[in-house]
Amino acid sequence: MNVFRLAGDMTHLSSILVLLLKIHTIKSCAGISLKTQELYALVFITRYLDIFDRFTSIYNFLMKLIFLGSSLSIVWYMRRHKAVHRSYDKDQDTFRYQFIVLPCLLLALVINHKLTFKEVMWTFSLYLEAVAILPQLVLLQRTRNIDNLTGQYVFLLGAYRALYLLNWVYRYFTEPGFVRWITWIAGLVQTLLYADFFYYYILSWKNNVKLELPA
């Protein structure tokens, strides 16, 4: 494991902790898209179907458990916890699942390494992760007042993807034969989706003003 991969994972973990902090201590999920959170839960469930029969390391195993547990608990909080649920911007969170899930499923059935259930589900999870942020970005654009924790959450998620790109560049040059087209292209698309957000996030940080995305 290289430093970019570790930094990427830690950034990913931090983003989830920031979100849990907001939900658990402030009891608010204002500005957070439940659709995106449910898509992430689906991403982890379909990607880690091999959690009990493909062991790579204790680190990977524990991280998989953490990602599964945290994503499911976030969805639970937003749906079932009374105070948290009240703060959910339901009317603004209108992105339709089927626009994301169906194309990803079709693409995974067509472009994959092997046409088996687990392999297609794994590929589906990569495509789905790439675009799962879309409902969140749409919601951000509609939110007049983006609070700091929400802004940080999305920034950390984007940073995690950027660090994974660096990890792949590093691995390409240090590990002979390290080529993973499906992972790379899905990862690149995912990172590009954050470009616009990054631009406004850094601008607001530099000028020390509240983050607001143009409509």
Partner: peptide
């Protein structure tokens, strides 16, 4: 297929 055995990332 080599690609199938390299799921060492999260």
């Amino acid at each position: 297929d080599e690609q199938l055995d390299v799921k060492d990332e999260l």
